[in-house]
């Protein structure tokens, strides 16, 4: 509700050419035509999609795997869940810088460990081929939110259903496949959407550690929009980019709903 006005503002500005302090000039769809012809936009879109795919799908799998592993963990379960969850809660400038240090080609922990097993590690964030994978690993470090949501969802799977399935002779795998996993459908869809939106917002690590480089290999849409608006002062173009991001996201969410389709069943949602 309170966000509706700014969104309308962004939509309006997207049709303007505005580089303050010059006056606003309405340019119709020129900004969008420029976006379509802008190779940097396509590269940023590609990078963002790679980042999204690289974080969302493994993030769901790791999240569910850890949740299954940590569920019912008696001794130290609180501590383990806390350790998994902490990165997501404290993530920001400080953790980005810590990762920059871990990924340091010469003094970094990662390449030191790789060296122990005889692998000469790449320059990570300074290597166009490895910078994006490094960012994806940093993103996956925040998977704790998925773990917590899955833990909650697992506990909400109606126990009677599982017991009934067990009585019918279903083994662990069978119970998971036919009872637990279907019941997790809505939560998985929800996480996929929220994670995808989050992936499209990634800003701090790219801004701080790579500035979108090397060779624009980590330039994401969020960073490109920021640069246009606040570095180059092209507010109209940046607004059009913001709208383009929303449109891509809407398309992605629609796709996710479609993929999920009738496979998502709502079990026990009547509280």
């Amino acid at each position: 509700m309170f966000q509706a006005a700014p969104i309308a503002g962004a939509a309006a500005l997207a049709f303007a050419d505005w580089a303050p302090p010059l006056p606003v000039e309405w340019v119709g769809t020129a900004n969008f035509e420029a976006i379509v012809r802008d190779p940097v936009f396509w590269q940023a879109l590609g990078n963002t999609l790679v980042y999204g795919l690289g974080t969302v799908v493994p993030g769901l799998a790791i999240g569910l795997g850890l949740a299954l592993l940590l569920r019912g963990q008696r001794r130290g379960g609180t501590l383990l869940r806390g350790a998994v969850f902490l990165p997501a809660v404290v993530s920001g400038v400080a953790t980005a810088l810590v990762w920059g240090w871990i990924l340091n080609p010469r003094f970094g922990l990662l390449n030191t460990l790789l060296g122990l097993v005889g692998i000469q590690g790449p320059a990570w964030l300074q290597d166009p081929r490895w910078a994006m994978p490094a960012l994806i690993v940093m993103g996956l470090w925040n998977v704790g939110i998925n773990v917590i949501v899955y833990l909650a969802a697992l506990n909400a799977v109606p126990r009677e259903l599982q017991e009934a399935a067990a009585l019918d002779g279903a083994g662990r795998a069978g119970r998971f496949r036919h009872v637990v996993w279907p019941a997790l459908g809505p939560v998985t869809l929800y996480l996929a959407i929220v994670n995808a939106i989050g992936a499209f917002q990634v800003f701090t690590p790219t801004y701080l550690l790579t500035s979108g480089g090397p060779d624009s290999s980590t330039l994401t849409l969020a960073l490109y929009t920021y640069q246009n608006a606040f570095t180059y002062g092209r507010l109209g173009y940046a607004s059009a980019l913001a709208i383009a991001i929303v449109l891509v996201l809407v398309a992605l969410v629609a796709l996710q709903f479609r993929l999920a389709g009738r496979r998502v069943t709502y079990v026990g949602t009547d509280g």
Partner: peptide
């Protein structure tokens, strides 16, 4: 529906493992 589905997860007593686990 999605948000509802998540919230239905009985949010305030979530970390209790199912014994079956």
């Amino acid at each position: 529906g999605l948000v509802g589905a998540v919230a239905t997860v009985d949010g305030w007593s979530i970390v209790r493992p199912v014994g079956e686990a």
